[in-house]
């Protein structure tokens, strides 16, 4: 065994990687649960019902107008006041979901609306039901447009999971703080953490750019 790598002991590396696992976990929750809720938000934003549209708009504006940090505080410190038991993991998962849903919902609403009006109308004229129109005509076209910005936003999700460290969620940034408290090598440890975030995010950015180029070529 190598006694230390980049000046970090094996035990600290193990802790960092455990933190990395939680970072990935929170990112996945943010993307999957946030995507699910976000899809509902996107559909609500283009609903025929003024009330549903309005509620969705309020939700999006509320979340987009609140720092993620404050959202985490509200869930972690605020809800227990009303008797809700709120461990850091639950608060972090809910916050990431609410956060991602608002942004993904807006991204996807834009994608749905960028499918030309005439395509919606052509589907109507063929007697397709609303859900058939969405599923068979609009979604397949919107999906192609949606992939690059969606993958791009995944980078934001990954980076924003670090905010969960403030409520004691043991993800990578939090572990980094603990290691730094023990070793007093902030430059070294945070540089390593930056490197690990980069390793998570760069493939996503790269993929997003590539998909965008591919889409542009396909559209000519």
């Amino acid at each position: 065994m190598i006694p230390s790598l980049l000046g970090i002991s094996p035990a600290h590396w193990a802790a960092l990687l455990a933190g990395l696992k939680w970072t990935v976990f929170l990112s996945a929750v943010g993307f999957l649960a946030g995507g699910l809720v976000g899809f509902a938000v996107a559909l609500s934003r283009i609903s025929d019902s003024l009330i549903i549209r309005g509620l969705a708009a309020v939700y999006v504006n509320l979340i987009q107008g609140t720092p993620l940090l404050v959202l985490m505080f509200v869930l972690y410190f605020g809800l227990p006041v009303f008797g809700f038991d709120m461990p850091p993991l639950a608060a972090a998962c809910i916050a990431m979901t609410l956060f991602s849903a608002a942004y993904l919902g807006e991204i996807w609403r834009g994608c749905l609306q960028s499918v030309p009006r005439t395509q919606w109308e052509a589907a109507d004229c063929l007697a397709l039901a609303r859900w058939e129109r969405m599923l068979l005509v609009i979604l397949p076209q919107a999906l192609r447009i949606a992939v690059p910005p969606t993958v791009g936003f995944m980078v934001q999700i990954v980076k924003n999971t670090s905010v969960a460290s403030v409520i004691g969620m043991a993800e990578m940034t939090y572990i980094g703080k603990l290691i730094n408290n023990a070793t007093f090598q902030p430059f070294r440890i945070y540089l390593i953490i930056a490197g690990l975030y980069f390793l998570l995010c760069y493939p996503l950015s790269w993929l997003s750019r590539r998909l965008e180029r591919k889409l542009n070529v396909a559209h000519r």
Binding site: T118, Q119, E121, A122, A123, C125, L126, A127, V137, Q141
Partner: peptide, 15 residues
């Protein structure tokens, strides 16, 4: 709409 067929200037085929 099953009884009515309509065709527009801009074709509107599903790409």
């Amino acid at each position: 709409r099953q009884d009515v067929g309509i065709v527009f200037q801009s074709y509107n085929l599903f790409p």
